[in-house]
């Protein structure tokens, strides 16, 4: 059984791919309860992009209604959830 009070936030690392603009700060703490769509909105707002493609561990795109906590638990690398983003489809 999981303990009832796990840390509320997890570390998300945002990595640009292709010609996507780079963020000033690439490491963030995100609430576990946020959905993945939060990352896409964050990127679009901060980089002023119309659309952004996102991948985990340079391979697949999770569903936008997936929770950050769930994704982190399943796919973290050394405790970080690595999100690659690009302005065009990358890993087809």
């Amino acid at each position: 059984m999981d303990s009832p009070a796990p840390p509320e936030k997890v570390v998300v690392l945002l990595k640009a791919t292709g010609d996507a603009p780079i963020l000033k700060q690439s490491k963030f703490k995100v609430l576990k309860s946020e959905n993945f769509v939060f990352i896409s909105e964050f990127l679009r707002k901060n980089l002023k992009l119309d659309s952004v493609f996102m991948y985990l561990n340079s391979s697949f795109s999770p569903s936008l209604d997936e929770r950050i906590g769930t994704l982190h638990e399943a796919y973290n690398v050394d405790g970080k959830l690595i999100v690659n983003y690009s302005t065009t489809p990358a890993w087809g």
């Binding site: 561990n57 391979s59 697949f60 999770p62 399943a74 796919y75 890993w91």
Partner: peptide
């Protein structure tokens, strides 16, 4: 399917 492959094999390759 890629996501499933990642879970099953640790890689989507």
């Amino acid at each position: 399917l890629k996501e499933a492959a990642y879970v099953l094999t640790g890689s989507s390759s």
